[in-house]
Write a protein that binds this DNA or RNA. Structure first.
Lengths: 99, 99
DNA sequence: TACTTACGTAAGAAATGACTAAACTATTTG
DNA sequence: CAAATAGTTTAGTCATTTCTTACGTAAGTA
């Protein structure tokens, strides 16, 4: 949860959400130095929110959707939000366009 | 999001999740001084995650579930987690015990 | 009115966090 | 092997966060 507190890290997650991205490419998306991004990536990896894979001399980062989902489901439960229940109703109302 | 980074504040949210709780009662649940708790409460109120109500000389705090839900739904969308979709399927599988 | 209760606010210390520049490591390329 | 590339690690700075103690305030009580 602490790992999600920083806006840069949240953007990183968004960038690696759909595909593997190399560290340099990530750094290019920000106005920060590469070490700064590298450190953010370490935090995210340590928090188990993203994965790293070595490919040649680059490191490819990718989101770990399951961990993010688990985190949210836990909080939903911990705080008795009934979030999922809510959405269930909303989708039923909307005519069940997906399934 | 930053407001949720602190573990003390997350516990506070849990404590005020089901009913209104006075500041002193909250402080008693932690090994922190009352001013410390008061400051955490301020952060949570400023972040619009909980509400305050004056009753005589006490201040009653209560969670603002809608804000929390909105926060999570936004992140779910921002990160394309499809969290709700996932759960929808799980519940259908479980036999739709709630509705 | 004076005292107590239930808080909040202010000021400052200490810890944590987010950077940068410089140095280091591993991998490919000439 | 030497040089370049892709990246991390280290050391140090500055800003923010989190706490405590001391003080201030509003509401009930004797």
């Amino acid at each position: 949860m602490r790992a999600l507190a920083d806006p840069t890290r949240r953007r990183i997650i968004q960038l690696v959400r759909s595909r593997e991205v190399a560290a340099a490419e990530l750094a290019a998306s920000f106005e920060l130095t590469r070490p700064a991004i590298s450190q953010h990536l370490k935090v995210l990896v340590d928090a188990n929110l993203i994965t790293v894979r070595k490919k040649g001399r680059q490191r490819l980062y990718n989101v770990r959707q399951e961990s993010l989902k688990a985190l949210f489901l836990n909080l939903d439960d911990y705080w008795s939000l009934g979030l999922l229940r809510l959405q269930l109703a909303a989708e039923a109302r909307a005519g069940n366009t997906l399934k």
